[in-house]
Design a protein around this nucleic acid. Structure first.
Lengths: 190, 190
DNA sequence: CGCGACGTTGATTTGCCTCAACGATTGTGG
DNA sequence: CCACAATCGTTGAGGCAAATCAACGTCGCG
């Protein structure tokens, strides 16, 4: 049951069988078909979402009515609009399954209770958040450091599985490029 | 002693007098003169830094040998290169005092011990990290959503004290603009 | 006073976008 | 199993936001 999730927990904290059972009792599993939404703009982001299997994207609609992707999540990654989640404010984001996905949600409504019952999870989430923050710092540096062309090439060579798995125009959006320009860059490289 | 720091702790968790004493025993205070460095590229980021009073900036040197600022921290904010801190990897960043500053460091060498002695701090740092992550998500969205001009105007009106307090070319760097272009934007607005 | 740090101005250049049109591939209902 | 429509990627012409480069003003400070 939820092998990826439990493996992820045990990677950062020690839990006995009983505690693992306790955690899983608080989880709300969500199965998504391709293109189905986990969150839509205007709704409150109810949970912290763990991708047990599949692939999600998080995006907003900009003032030109174009989808702007800000994050992906593959198997074993967490995803949430933390601002909306923490303050119960309506989100400006959509979270959508790129492929058929199996997601585990820890809803805010049970989050505090869960933390009280299994206090080690404070540590787990502290580490998860800290790592996410580190990743975000790295991304910021790369965006400033590189031209858009280098940024694309860097991404394509760093995450080849990714470029296979998701459509090219989504990669373009995530990197802040137009699909046309990515097309030009790919031609150039060969 | 460290009034801003303690106020910040108590804002998110409950601690009794004894626990507060325990925490302060683990702190390494650092006083910085204007332009003094707290971290230089190549060094490991030893601590999580809390700005008790003053103003810091974090930047790296890009391939054109230009300083690129990625973050500021005013009184009451945390700052660190989390990637370097967590994995003890040499940092690519500099952290420098923009003005005379009083910083409190929680060094990695005592971090785990401190968390063991005052377990509520796991919660405190989980919240701190989560909020930093939320802020980072908002910044990412703004950078994608707005033109550079809007981004500058948004920043200038959202943080007027800031624009007073730090030189214009640093604001420009933080926003990913050239000083010349910011100059042009300011002229335009009046 | 003189130097260095900071800001401004204008001319020129360019990286990347916009727009429009056209293949190629996929998938879906009849 | 085919027809036809989406969906996705490509190409090329033209345009613009913002960078680059160079030169000059101005202020504060040793």
């Amino acid at each position: 049951m939820y092998p990826n999730f439990i493996k992820n927990l045990l990677r950062f904290i020690d839990l006995n069988e009983q505690e693992i059972q306790a955690v899983t009792r608080y989880i709300r599993p969500v199965n998504l078909k391709k293109k189905e939404y986990l969150l839509e703009a205007g709704q409150v982001c109810r949970g912290l979402y763990f991708v047990e299997k599949g692939c999600l994207r998080m995006f907003f609609i900009n003032d030109k009515s174009v989808e702007q992707i800000v994050q992906f999540a593959l198997d074993g990654w967490w995803m949430a609009d933390h601002f909306s989640f923490m303050d119960c404010k309506p989100s400006e984001y959509y979270i959508q399954a790129i492929e058929k996905s199996e997601v585990l949600s820890i809803d805010l409504s049970v989050f505090e209770q869960l933390l009280a019952e299994v206090p080690q999870l404070e540590r787990y989430f502290r580490i998860i958040m800290q790592r996410a923050l580190a990743a975000s710092q790295v991304r910021t540096r790369l965006m400033f450091e590189m031209t858009k062309e280098e940024f694309y090439q860097h991404f394509a060579t760093s995450f080849p599985e990714f470029v296979q798995r998701v459509p090219q125009y989504m990669v373009a959006s995530y990197l802040g490029l137009t699909p046309e320009y990515v097309s030009e860059l790919r031609k150039k490289k060969q």
